[in-house]
Simulated assay, not measured.
Amino acid sequence: MSTLTAPPPGFREALAFEWTKFASLRSTRWTTAAVGLVTMAGAVFVGLSGSLQADDTVLGGSLTLSVVSLMISGVVGALTICGEYASGTVTSTFAAVPRRGRVLATKAVLLAGLLFGLSLASCTVAYLLGSAILEDGRYARGEPMPAVLGIAGLFAVVGVLGLAIGVLVRHSAGAVTTVIAVMLLPSLFGPLFGGAQRWIAGATPTAALEKLTQTSDASPDAVGSLGAWPSLALVAAYTVVLLALAVRRLRRRDA
């Protein structure tokens, strides 16, 4: 008597499965929402407090807290997989979708799509809020397009970066700490490397964000001499490398 074996779920079915898990977890829902809320709240705070520097732009000032939101995006990516390891549901995930590379791919696509859409909307609203609150004509406007698209792309990339780190580390606390370290430590310890500071600090996602937002803090000495878009491409490149390492580890180790 022959036994019929159901084919493994396709990409669309696996993506729907990942969305159901993502939306059902309170931690990921609220953390993702914080990505947009913090960005918009920062625009209101800067506008009402009058803390914008004279040489800054409306775009840069309105997106002051987008640095914090960018870190939260990385944390969302890490929690997406680490939460499953902590609860043990990752075993069920691999049972439902045996192709582990497909599991990681669907998680990456889901995160990238959500974070791109959310950050594009929140950064646009933040810029509009800043433009409405800040005194007209006192500050340079900046060039919001296509910069906002690049910023949204950076948020998506950092979410996938957090996912890759989560797969490699597997523990929520360790993965979150690593994500924050990637964001902050190169800038903090860059001066210890002398002339190499601009290259070390310039390779971080926060440096790419400062260049894209056209903030006055984005000086070559602090964030490197690469342009905004090459910096974004560099962050995307090593994210792809880490994601490939994550796929390899996922296939070689037990759940």
Rank of each mutant, 00 (worst) to 15 (best):
R12W: 13
C82S: 13
V223Q: 01
S119K: 07
M1E: 11
L163I: 10
E18D: 15
Q214I: 04
L52K: 10
A228F: 08
S62I: 07
M1F: 11
L245I: 11
A181W: 08
W229L: 12
M40W: 05
G10T: 13
L63R: 07
L15M: 10
P186I: 09
F189L: 15
L242V: 15
S27T: 14
R252E: 14
A164F: 05
V58Y: 06
T64K: 10
A156D: 06
G83Q: 07
K107T: 07
A23Y: 08
A96Q: 12
L48G: 05
F11P: 01
V46S: 01
E84H: 07
F189I: 15
T57V: 08
W229A: 06
V46W: 09
V44L: 15
T106Y: 10
M183G: 00
V35G: 03
C123L: 06
E135I: 13
A208H: 01
T57G: 02
P186S: 02
D136A: 15
L52Q: 14
G202E: 03
T93K: 13
L128K: 04
A112D: 05
A196N: 03
A34K: 03
Y238F: 15
S131V: 04
A78G: 05
G202I: 09
E13N: 09
A255N: 06
V46K: 01
W199R: 01
V58N: 05
A23D: 11
A201N: 04
P98T: 10
L25M: 12
L110P: 02
V35Y: 11
F11Q: 04
M1W: 07
V241M: 13
Q53P: 10
T93W: 14
E210G: 00
G227M: 08
R170F: 10
V157E: 04
E143M: 03
A208E: 01
T213I: 15
S27V: 15
R252H: 13
V76I: 15
L234E: 06
E18W: 10
R138F: 10
V38C: 06
A6E: 10
L154F: 08
L184R: 04
S49V: 09
L48M: 15
T215C: 05
V90Y: 08
A196R: 03
T204E: 09
L209P: 00
L226G: 00
S219H: 09
V223S: 01
V75D: 00
V68L: 15
A207F: 10
T32W: 11
G130E: 08
S122E: 05
L118I: 15
A41G: 13
S49W: 14
D55Q: 14
R252I: 11
G224A: 03
E18G: 01
A95C: 09
